[in-house]
């Protein structure tokens, strides 16, 4: 086959190299972040609601102290920061379900964007919103008069934020499980129950004995204990660390498997 005449002599040949990093681009991430921050529903559940919870359930405990003399309000604030972060990261990860239902993921397959770059964008977006959720909760707490040493802010905040990575994976896991437009309406109540077992709404110690034992095996327990450890000074139990690691593996591996199933060509 010899076609000697160039058919597009007047047009400069486009750059046909592959994109760097599989198409991962800060510009696209920026649009994704703006998109998340524009979603009123997401903002209501991740930034406003946990703050309001603190004002309603936290503030009335003002003046009461933990065993080590630190304020109970700080305990509640940190717990709600964990809750805010996990809802934030789950909702971003779970949005994959919506995008699959809408057919956007199929549209993306017509572009150079590699699936791994897509997931990386989702994870960074999830963790950004998670960080914002923690910061907002701490700002609300501070504004309402909660005072703790700086290292507690920092370590508890970091633990709440990094722990929420487990739920970013959980969100992706759910997102790749089934395409659904309103996935958060299904997961929202599940997160609330998990948060309850994780001691984010009331201390696990006030639950009935059986539930206390069950709680130790639920996914929020570990991150709750870790996030509050700098405040309570209780130290970190091995059970909490194992809990966090195991659930991170379960959701991470689960998400990766479903992701591979989704991107396989049939």
């Amino acid at each position: 086959m010899t076609t000697s005449t160039p058919t597009r002599a007047a047009v400069t040949e486009p750059d046909r190299r592959l994109p760097a990093l599989g198409g991962f681009a800060p510009g696209a991430l920026g649009i994704e972040l703006r998109r998340v921050l524009r979603n009123r529903r997401t903002l209501a559940f991740t930034l406003i609601m946990p703050g309001v919870f603190f004002l309603i359930f936290g503030l009335p405990q003002g003046g009461q102290s933990l065993d080590n003399g630190r304020p109970v309000t700080a305990y509640i604030m940190i717990s709600l920061a964990v809750y805010a972060a996990m809802v934030a990261t789950t909702s971003v990860g779970g949005a994959v379900a919506t995008e699959r239902a809408l057919g956007w993921s199929r549209q993306l397959r017509l572009t150079p964007l590699r699936p791994a770059a897509y997931v990386a964008t989702k994870l960074i977006t999830a963790m950004s919103l998670g960080l914002l959720a923690v910061v907002v909760e701490f700002v609300v707490g501070t504004a309402a008069g909660v005072r703790v040493p700086a290292y507690v802010w920092l370590l508890s905040g970091l633990a709440a934020w990094l722990g929420s990575l487990v739920f970013a994976a959980f969100g992706l896991f759910i997102g790749y499980l089934a395409p659904a437009e309103n996935v958060m309406q299904i997961i929202g109540p599940v997160l609330a129950v998990l948060a309850m077992f994780g001691g984010l709404f009331v201390p696990v110690e006030v639950l009935p004995d059986v539930l206390q034992q069950v709680a130790k095996f639920t996914p929020v327990y570990g991150m709750g204990v870790l996030a509050r450890a700098p405040l309570t000074g209780d130290g970190v139990s091995m059970a909490a660390v194992v809990n966090l690691v195991v659930w991170a593996l379960v959701f991470g591996v689960g998400a990766a498997r479903l992701f591979r199933r989704d991107t396989a060509r049939v």
């Binding site: 750059d15 046909r16 190299r17 592959l18 994109p19 760097a20 198409g23 681009a25 510009g27 696209a28 649009i31 994704e32 703006r34 998109r35 524009r38 979603n39 995008e99 239902a101 809408l102 057919g103 956007w104 199929r106 549209q107 993306l108 572009t111 150079p112 964007l113």
Partner: peptide, 20 residues
């Protein structure tokens, strides 16, 4: 499919970022 909550312009700019 398309993302309903992006604008037309944002959809184009976002997609453009995926290419070299």
């Amino acid at each position: 499919g398309l993302l309903k909550d992006l604008t037309v312009g944002e959809t184009v700019r976002m997609t453009a970022h995926f290419y070299r």
